[in-house]
């Protein structure tokens, strides 16, 4: 028990906690970019032409 308490105040553990907090603070800066067209617009284009998919994908056998 004393060993576990000692570990919490140990340098490595404190360093881990500090880095975890630092990573969390970086969340707001790490963001993916996307400027592409919406799926609504993509599907509207196909719907407007009356397109109905005849796409089929052969699954094959599982071994």
């Amino acid at each position: 028990m004393l060993q576990e308490i000692k570990e919490v105040f140990g340098k490595d553990y404190q360093e881990e906690v500090r880095f975890l907090e630092f990573k969390n603070s970086m969340r707001q800066y790490v963001k993916l970019k996307n400027e592409s067209e919406s799926i609504d617009d993509k599907m509207e284009r196909l719907r407007a032409t009356g397109y109905l998919s005849n796409c089929h994908i052969k699954v094959g056998d599982f071994e």
């Binding site: 993509k42 599907m43 196909l46 397109y51």
Partner: peptide, 9 residues
């Protein structure tokens, strides 16, 4: 579907 739509666009 998206690929087809993109080609048409």
């Amino acid at each position: 579907l998206c690929m087809l739509s993109d080609y048409e666009r």
